[in-house]
Every structure is written in structure tokens, then in C-alpha cells.
Amino acid sequence: MDNLGFETRAIHAGQEPDPRTGAVIVPIYQTSTYAQDGVGGTREGDYEYSRTANPTRTALEEQLASLEGARHGLAFASGMAASDAVLRAVLRPGDHLVLGNDAYGGTFRLIDKVLAQWGIAHTVADLSNVDRVRAAVRPETRLIWCESPSNPLLGIADIAALAAIAHDAGARLVVDNTFATPYLQTPLALGADVVVHSTTKYLGGHSDVVGGAVLTGEDELREQLFFLRNAAGAVPGPFDVWLTLRGIKTLAVRMERHCDNAELVAETLAAHPKVAKVYYPGLPGHPGHEVAAKQMRRFGGMVSFRHADGERAALEMSARTSLFILAESLGGIESLIEHPGRMTHASTSGSLLQVPADLVRLSVGIEDVRDLVTDLRAALGWSQGR
């Protein structure tokens, strides 16, 4: 299966027809428990209780592992549950991690407010600058946590370079690959040790499911993560898993359209007099453009920009679109708009991770891009026809 193309694996990896009925789509095993062959025995596949394992979940884990080039995949109830499991598996009191200075607000909150109570320290650094990353590493550093592209400033980190820094320090590199997806980028092939996803986003792709995943090639780490997930119970239900399986089958074609639309939206915004700055790695002027072109297939469906008239104008504009829906989350087929400082990244207020107050973030969907451009121009106060 590994020698097949991405699109083929997205449809077939972990998706064998049901052996009993021949169903070509993996069934939803909506069960909590399984009949056992005897006391202390289980049926084929080691299924005994669905918190521990479920055949629908196994199919998703095999599918994701194939797409990310990983030996192991584990599905979780949410992206944050997946991130939490990795952090708890790798770190102990007294340890230290390096975090990007434009990380997702929820990840920062988990590290700054929860793990700090365990005595785990962190340093915020610009991950696009390898010298600053090296300077942030301590003898007790056990992990570098990277997003590339980052949320919400679309920063780009050189994953191979960060992996080398981490390994020289005896640490692991974890890459949150949610924005890129395995269709656009495979961090494990670039030297990362662990990949995490919010499968809620592009992988599910239809804004109808919440989930997360961890991918790794390390056998021992997989066992630790499996134990933590079973012990804490952070498992997705079989219907949520099935929705994610269904979404991933069309990931490649959706991502191509997301990228097509985002490129045109970014170019339109860059030429608009009410836009002070556009953050999109596909633009040649983006500081991470060359690195992104090297490690990504294309540049993704997320675009952020700063409103030239400040925070109030950014807030008003965010509420004035008609096709772009004012909402948190991202990666669905529909286009979304949000104000990170007041919404997804409010938890970073007062920290080193503060996002610009005039920043607007777009999740560019797969609608007719002409309609999307018209909607943005109207909301910015420059209405034009097609």
C-alpha cells in the first residue's frame, strides 16, 4: 500500500471490504463491548471494550498512518486531547519545551496554564529563526513544539532544521500538521518524531465532527500514548471516526480547491487599499515562502491579514461578510472568518504570543472563488462586480 499514490491510499488504506458482508465502506461499529472467546481471552484484533479499541477507529488509524508515513496512528476525541497525550507522554516535572511565538491559543493555554502546574517550563521562540531556537534550548529541553504553517500568522518553520536541533539536544520534534494536512506536507519524512492533528479541520473537512490524532514511528512512544488514551478515556466515538474516514477520502481534491481559492484571495487582499499586510506563504514576499515551497506541495487554504484601519475596523469587517461565516474553527468546505485576538487566541492576551489586534483570519472554503472575492471586497468597503 505504501507504494501507491496519496489519493489511492486515502481511499483504500485501512478500508478493506467488510469480510462478513462485503460492504465497501467500513461499518460503524456502534458497540461498547465485545464477546470474548473465554475468560481473559479476546477475539481477533484484541477487541474487548471500545474505550480500548474499536474496529472503526482502527481503520482510521491505519488510514492516517499511511498518509503521514508513520508506523503508528492513534485517534483521539479532539486535537487538544491528542496534544495533551503527547505532552504528558514525553514530559515530566522539571522538563522544558520550546514553543513557537505564534502558536495556537489552545496549545499555549494547555502548556502555560496546565503543564506549568506540573513544574514544566517553556520558552517562546521564533521558530522561523534557527539561531533563536538553538538559543532557547536548555539542557532540560525534551521537546520542540512546532506549527508550520502556524495559527494564525501563517509562519513557516524549516522542519528538517528544527529536527536536527531537537535531536542534537536529545529532544523530540513535534509538528502540528493541521493547517498543511498530510496531502501538502509530511513532517515525519522531514525528520520530525511526532505529528499531531486536529482532525476536526481539513481531515474531517465538513465542520461536522470533532477529533484528533497522533502519528509516530516510535514503538515505545506509541505504547505510552495508547496507555494514556485508554487510562484517561480520551477516545472518539465510532460515528465521529466514520465521519473522519469519509472526509479523508476526498482530502486531496478538496485541498487542491482550497489552495486555488486561497491563492486568489491572498492576491486580492494584497492589492486592496484597506489591507496593511497579508500573511500567506504562497505569496513571494512571505518570509517563509522559499522554505514552504521546499517542504510543502502547495501553500494551503488559510489566509490572515491586518486591516489598515485598526482593530475596530477589523472587528466590523469580520461581522460584515455574507458568505464568509463569522465562526471559530477552520478547514471545512465553507469559508469562515474570525478575529483571532477576540476569538481563537483570546487566551494569549498579555503573553508573548499576542496576535495583532487588527488581524483577521480566513479559512478559505471551496465555493466559487469569484463570489468569495466579491464578498471580501464588499465587506472591506470596496464593492466591485465580477
Rank of each mutant, 00 (worst) to 15 (best):
residue 8 T to G: 01
residue 9 R to T: 07
residue 16 E to A: 14
residue 28 I to H: 05
residue 30 Q to Y: 01
residue 30 Q to C: 05
residue 30 Q to K: 14
residue 39 V to Y: 14
residue 50 S to N: 15
residue 55 P to G: 12
residue 56 T to M: 09
residue 58 T to D: 15
residue 62 E to S: 13
residue 62 E to N: 15
residue 63 Q to D: 06
residue 69 G to Q: 10
residue 75 A to P: 00
residue 77 A to Y: 00
residue 83 S to R: 10
residue 94 G to I: 10
residue 95 D to C: 08
residue 107 T to S: 07
residue 109 R to A: 15
residue 111 I to Q: 06
residue 113 K to G: 11
residue 114 V to Y: 12
residue 116 A to W: 02
residue 117 Q to K: 14
residue 127 L to E: 11
residue 127 L to R: 03
residue 128 S to T: 12
residue 128 S to M: 10
residue 151 N to I: 06
residue 151 N to C: 05
residue 156 I to C: 03
residue 157 A to P: 07
residue 158 D to S: 09
residue 158 D to G: 03
residue 160 A to L: 01
residue 162 L to A: 06
residue 163 A to G: 07
residue 166 A to R: 02
residue 167 H to A: 05
residue 168 D to I: 04
residue 169 A to Q: 08
residue 175 V to Y: 00
residue 179 F to W: 11
residue 185 Q to P: 00
residue 185 Q to V: 04
residue 187 P to T: 09
residue 191 G to F: 02
residue 194 V to K: 02
residue 195 V to F: 03
residue 202 Y to C: 03
residue 207 S to T: 07
residue 215 L to E: 08
residue 219 D to N: 09
residue 222 R to L: 03
residue 225 L to Y: 00
residue 230 N to Y: 06
residue 234 A to F: 07
residue 243 L to P: 03
residue 247 G to L: 01
residue 252 A to T: 07
residue 253 V to Q: 12
residue 258 H to M: 07
residue 263 E to D: 02
residue 267 E to Y: 00
residue 268 T to E: 08
residue 274 K to G: 15
residue 283 L to R: 08
residue 292 A to G: 14
residue 293 A to D: 13
residue 300 G to S: 08
residue 330 L to C: 00
residue 336 L to H: 07
residue 344 T to K: 03
residue 350 G to N: 08
residue 356 P to H: 11
residue 362 L to C: 11
residue 375 D to T: 05
residue 380 L to D: 10
residue 382 W to C: 07
